[in-house]
Nucleic acid binder design. Structure first.
Length: 435
RNA sequence: GUCCCCAUCGUCUAGUCAGGUCUAGGACACCAGCCUUUCAAGCUGGCGACACGGGUUCGAAUCCCGUUGGGGAUACCA
């Protein structure tokens, strides 16, 4: 969608296959077995329940001590025998009990971390599947990866990875951890779905051009000292130096994105190309064919089309808080309801009419509301008006990303949810969907 | 709690590694003026930052220490 393509993968093939984790299980299990043999790992027979209990106890005591390593020193014969007898177990990494690990990060230089505070990471789950840590190391080695470039959130697990590379007798790659994109909220937390559109589909649906988005994203973290910021991907590739990436976590600036997009529209598109872009975006025959039947019963004149369907071709509909009402409910309750609906919709795998209808009717039932009352604020959130084309169909045409965004904006229009209220609302949802 | 990372205009950033050319440069946003049938665009100008405190040095945004602030990690998720 962004015009980016990977070089190898299950769909495009490549010399380092197979590319599906399930087809590589043997590889991971072999590695785990080797680690077991060489004493770098051990079988852990603790059950999920026991572990959970331990965690709960810790939480209750407000202690944060790590895993107790009960089976770490089990004699190998016993371990072997119990595994052979079919006892369920995981395979854990035997992390040194003392000393410290020194790692090199391309951007940050040397980082030290004491072994005593790193947990005996599970490598192989009880179902035989690897955790990320094992899979990551095995795959990267097998596939000849030279540079591991990933988000900063992984920096603390490098020691475990390093330990795996050495234990398996492999050459570790160069590690480079990039800063995380942040929310534009008061404390600039890690970019989250709840507060931001994180799906590139949203940006497409909202009418941003792919090359612009690539350009903007490239600007986060690297920039030229002066001058032109509008650059094609190729230009970036030419003078990109990984070590130039800046370390502060950047906040996504939608205003700057809009400005850049305006330039792409203005400077890179002929009127014909623009018309084509509009067609690809939302004015395709196919899309219009979906909207026309919804509008037809509600058109008195052809010219009503504009007002009636404008919301299908908009990013934001700026819902009027005065219209976001629900019979017998305070605004605060409406906010919670809208938020819960949003969460329920996020769970949806397929965005089709049946699923939408089922989800929304289910919500309605659980809130013990009448359908016509319940849908009112939803109409306003989605279309910006209390009278519009059918709700389910309209949401279907708009798609998941725009629909969710509009619900979110409706929540904001009503004053939003504080952290506390958000938690309470989450509990409320859990209570309503207990069964 | 503990550990790790980070810190320049409101935001994205240049400058930091190799201290002086930095009364800190650019971009978005904002404000004003010009242009213009409106608006947008364009042009010109303005506002606006080295988190704080100690060192080192003739000299610190830049090096060191501390404080504060922020982020991340602490799973049989990735």
């Amino acid at each position: 969608r962004l015009g980016l393509q990977w070089d190898e993968g299950p769909d495009v093939g490549g010399p380092h296959g197979p590319y599906r984790q399930s087809e590589r299980l043997e590889l991971y299990q072999d590695a785990a077995y080797r680690l077991l043999e060489s004493g770098h790992a051990y079988r852990d027979f603790m059950t999920r329940e026991e572990l959970q209990e331990l965690r709960q106890r810790e939480q209750a005591n407000k202690t944060f001590e790590h895993y107790e390593r009960r089976d770490r020193d089990l004699p190998s014969e016993e371990s072997e025998a119990r595994a052979a007898a079919g006892e369920v177990h995981t395979v854990r990494l035997k992390v040194p009990l003392d000393g410290e690990c020194t790692l090199q990060d391309l951007l940050r230089g040397e980082i030290r971390r004491e072994w005593a505070i790193v947990d005996d990471q599970v490598l192989l789950k009880s179902d035989g599947f690897p955790t990320y840590h094992l899979a990551n190391v095995v795959d990267d080695h097998e596939m000849g990866i030279t540079h591991v470039i990933r988000g900063e959130e992984w920096i603390n697990s490098v020691p475990k990875h390093l330990l795996l590379y050495t234990a398996l007798g492999w050459e570790p790659p160069v590690f480079c951890h990039l800063p995380l994109l942040r929310n534009n909220d008061a404390n600039k937390t890690k970019l989250s779905k709840r507060k931001n559109p994180t799906s590139i589909h949203y940006f497409r649906d909202a009418g941003f051009l792919a090359p612009c988005l690539v350009n903007y994203l490239a600007l986060m973290g690297i920039s030229r000292a002066e001058g032109e910021e509008k650059m094609a991907l190729g230009d970036f590739v030419d003078d990109f130096d990984l070590e130039d990436v800046s370390l502060g976590g950047p906040v996504f600036d939608i205003d700057k994105l809009r400005w850049l997009n305006a330039r792409y529209i203005r400077e890179d598109l002929s009127p014909t190309a623009l018309r084509e872009a509009l067609r690809e975006w939302a004015l395709s025959d196919e899309n219009l064919d979906r909207i026309v039947p919804l509008a037809q019963p509600r058109l008195q004149t052809l010219s009503d089309w504009g007002h009636l369907t404008a919301f299908f071709f908009a990013d934001d509909v700026a819902p009027d808080p005065e219209l976001l009402t629900l019979k017998g409910k305070e605004p605060a309750e409406i906010v919670s309801i809208l938020q819960i609906v949003t969460w329920r919709l996020e769970q949806l795998r397929e965005w089709n009419l049946e699923a939408l209808e089922e989800t929304l009717r289910d919500c309605c039932d659980r809130f013990e509301l009448k359908m016509r009352d319940f849908t009112r604020p939803l109409y306003v959130a989605i279309s910006g008006s209390a009278s519009s084309t059918p709700l389910f169909d309209s949401m279907l045409v708009l798609g998941p990303d725009l629909s969710r965004m509009r619900l979110r904006r409706a929540v904001d229009a009503l004053g939003g949810l504080s952290k506390k209220r958000l938690k309470a609302t989450e509990k409320q949802m859990q209570a309503l969907w207990r069964d």
